[in-house]
């Protein structure tokens, strides 16, 4: 039976339909947090890299948890995974959950760890650091 991309999208839509009450507010919240981040970051040190790394860490955690719990959630045991395709499916689903977790948490992390102090404050601190010469500050 041939499958079309739109057909797969519709199956995924039906899969998530029961969770839309939760997913739509979550996506909206993420978008709002993302927009707000760009507003907040103006004039401040951008530490998006740290937020990205933290989100990846959370994604890895979600991946491992899914990996451990998925067979049991289908009433199966690890002994029921008997071929490479079963492990491939398990890893694929877990990767999807990990990626979704990382993406969902990223805007939150941007706010929690992705915004540094004001640039002027940093410059002032550097300027008044004891023992520094005027030449060093200029650099």
């Amino acid at each position: 039976m041939a499958f079309s991309i739109t057909g797969i999208l519709f199956v995924m839509l039906e899969f998530f339909r029961g969770m839309l009450w939760f997913l739509i507010p979550l996506i909206l919240l993420d978008l709002i947090l993302l927009g707000w981040y760009f507003k907040r970051i103006s004039g401040r040190r951008n530490k998006a890299g740290l937020a990205f790394k933290t989100s990846i860490g959370f994604g890895v955690f979600a991946f491992v948890i899914t990996l451990i719990l998925l067979p049991g959630s289908t009433h199966a045991t690890w002994g029921d995974l008997i071929g490479w395709i079963d492990y491939f499916s398990l890893i694929l689903v877990s990767l999807g959950m990990g990626a979704a977790g990382a993406v969902a948490i990223f805007p939150v992390m941007l706010h929690l760890v992705g915004i540094g102090p004001r640039k002027e404050a940093v410059q002032k601190t550097q300027a008044t650091r004891p023992g520094q010469t005027a030449d060093e500050n200029a650099g």
């Binding site: 057909g7 519709f10 199956v11 995924m12 839509l13 039906e14 899969f15 339909r17 067979p71 289908t74 009433h75 199966a76 029921d80 995974l81 008997i82 395709i85 079963d86 491939f88 499916s89 398990l90 689903v93």
Partner: peptide
Amino acid sequence: WTSWLMKDYLLLPAYRA
């Protein structure tokens, strides 16, 4: 198990679609 996973999780959404 992969076929079981599809039966358990995917066939109902496919049916509704």
